[in-house]
Design a protein around this nucleic acid. Structure first.
Lengths: 114, 114
DNA sequence: TTCTTTAATCGTATATTTGCGATATAATAT
DNA sequence: ATATTATATCGCAAATATACGATTAAAGAA
């Protein structure tokens, strides 16, 4: 990057980008899908299903935790993860605030040019 | 990456990830915001507002075009961009299909563990 | 205690992204 | 015809992300 310019953008812009970044890899989408469909999921079950090494899955889980898309709890030797719906709701709200302004000015969603 | 494993995931998973990837940088969120708020936007206006060099903005615009989040049209020496709402709608739909299954099983959105 | 299981972390190689200045291109103005 | 303006593209350097095997840590079983 030479320099990281992320500080120069607003908190809102960074929050949206961070959320999007967390789901910007198909492995993480697949992990979220597993957890969401089972409501709760043990790490080992995810590793079994994905075409990735255990250490790689662990790294992806760490990122999802960091972005607060999932919550985790250690149960003995196993780790149990579930979706943090609050973050999803917050994202949906922020996303809509950001990208529906033009829509409300322009009900048919037709751009003036192009 | 050593190896790129993206092929090993489903088309749906990759589509979601690609969309998210396009908005996973605050500069691109800021660009989309500019275009959405004005409904339409000339490249130069975006460059003026962002804390980035012209060539960098151009690169980000190229990525947004590739992901079909925006459409572009050349008008003389200037380039006019606007939001491609169709893609946003598609994303919203796919996103909801993916992440509301557990929700419907579990109306209170409370996880069983953690 | 010792062995096994489960998952996190470390170290490392490679790939990709980000950012910029310089250059190219193409339309418009002089 | 030449100069100017607007934007895209090229080439490069630095930063980040992705992936894996090896190692570590900690709980549970034998």
């Amino acid at each position: 990057m030479a320099q990281n310019k992320k500080d120069e953008f607003s908190k809102r812009e960074n929050e949206l980008a961070d959320f999007a970044n967390a789901i910007s890899h198909p492995a993480r989408v697949a992990i979220l899908k597993q957890i969401a469909n089972r409501e709760t999921c043990i790490c080992g079950e995810i590793v079994e299903v994905l075409p990735l090494a255990q250490s790689t899955v662990s790294q992806h889980l760490k990122e999802l935790l960091k972005a607060e898309l999932i919550k985790g709890e250690i149960e003995g030797t196993k780790s149990c993860y579930c979706i943090n719906w609050k973050t999803f709701e917050k994202f949906e709200k922020t996303f809509n605030e950001f990208f529906t302004k033009a829509n409300s000015n322009n009900p048919g969603k037709q751009a003036k040019c192009c």
